[in-house]
């Protein structure tokens, strides 16, 4: 009960003081707002990049074609070797005949064309389809497989996928750098706002100390004030990112450029983003104000 009364008082004092030092509070709030808008963009971007890279990675397969004259025995030998490679998670094997049947099923054109080829004449090859555990090492794995006897061609989605992923990760890094710098500036501004509040209430704090208020009682209103600044600062970014992302998603029908890059469905994703933005705002406000309290409030 007592704790709640004290907290109630602290929250009341915090709001009062935000209004009393309105101009400086506004400066801090705007700075938090700008920071959080960029945080929101960064979060949305990085979640989406992560989402579609994992989607792509799931589909990423190494396809291995064996020499035309490979016998069944030799194919088994190849299979054993592939099994031993540590990065291989699973694989399937299809003989020439199976490949042919599958292709014929898929298309009428193939059906008639392939009917002309039987047994040894078939231009098709025995194939393995290998999935890997670690996509980053797919290149090394592919190279290893290429060295196995009777393997003629190895293919995986090299090129485009690699470039896309590396482009997005570098964008991500730059955004995080900007966010970090902005958070530092914001914290600095909040420290100064709280410092002003502390000096405005110096006399009150002195009397509080004389009548036996604990350090906790004296400090809490200032820390809550910082959190309130963070709370106010996160309102606009939350609205912007929520409606902005929904509009963006609808405008592109959920895809970016090609069906390969799928956007995350807005619900419940935007709620998670809002929560992250709100949390970041409040935590940044809290860090700033506790810094000021530690520096300027010697209790």
């Amino acid at each position: 009960m007592k704790l709640f009364r004290m907290l109630g008082r602290s929250i009341r004092d915090a709001f009062k003081s935000v209004i009393r030092n309105f101009s400086l509070s506004l400066a801090s709030i705007s700075c938090i707002t700008i920071t959080l808008i960029i945080v929101a963009i960064a979060v949305i971007a990085s979640f989406n990049v992560q989402n579609f890279t994992t989607e792509i990675e799931k589909d990423l397969t190494i396809v291995i074609f064996l020499d035309g004259e490979t016998t069944e025995e030799e194919a088994k030998q190849v299979e054993k070797t592939i099994k031993k490679i540590s990065n291989v998670s699973e694989y399937t094997f299809q003989t020439k005949q199976e490949v042919k049947e599958k292709m014929q099923e898929e298309s009428e054109v193939f059906k008639t064309v392939l009917d002309n080829f039987e047994g040894e004449d078939s231009p098709l090859k025995d194939t393995f389809q290998v999935k890997v555990k670690d996509v980053e090492k797919i290149k090394q794995t592919a190279e290893k497989i290429e060295k196995i006897d009777h393997v003629s061609v190895v293919r995986y989605g090299e090129g485009m996928v690699d470039k896309l992923v590396s482009a997005f990760t570098s964008i991500e890094k730059v955004t995080y750098g900007i966010v970090f710098a902005l958070i530092l500036v914001t914290i600095f501004l909040i420290v100064n706002t709280i410092k002003l509040t502390i000096s405005a209430r110096r006399k009150e704090i002195g009397i509080m100390r004389l009548v036996g208020a604990s350090n906790f009682t004296i400090k809490t209103p200032f820390i809550i004030e910082g959190m309130v600044l963070g709370l106010f600062g996160s309102i606009i970014p939350i609205i912007l990112s929520t409606y902005g992302y929904i509009a963006f998603y609808n405008h592109f029908d959920g895809y970016l450029y090609s069906e390969l890059i799928q956007l995350i469905v807005p619900e419940p994703f935007i709620y998670q983003v809002s929560l992250i933005v709100l949390g970041t705002g409040i935590i940044v406000g809290m860090i700033g104000s506790s810094g000021a309290v530690r520096k300027y409030l010697k209790v």
């Binding site: 009960m1 007592k2 704790l3 009364r5 004290m6 008082r9 006399k203 009150e204 002195g206 009397i207 509080m208 004389l210 009548v211 036996g212 208020a213 009682t217």
Partner: peptide, 28 residues
């Protein structure tokens, strides 16, 4: 503690000034 310069808060009434001491301790 009582001081020569009273140390009262000018924006609070007499009642609030005295109550302030108890509020800081979280009294009902």
């Amino acid at each position: 503690i009582v001081f020569q310069d009273y140390k009262l808060l000018p924006k609070l009434t007499v009642y609030e000034n005295v109550a302030f001491a108890l509020e800081c301790l979280g009294e009902k």
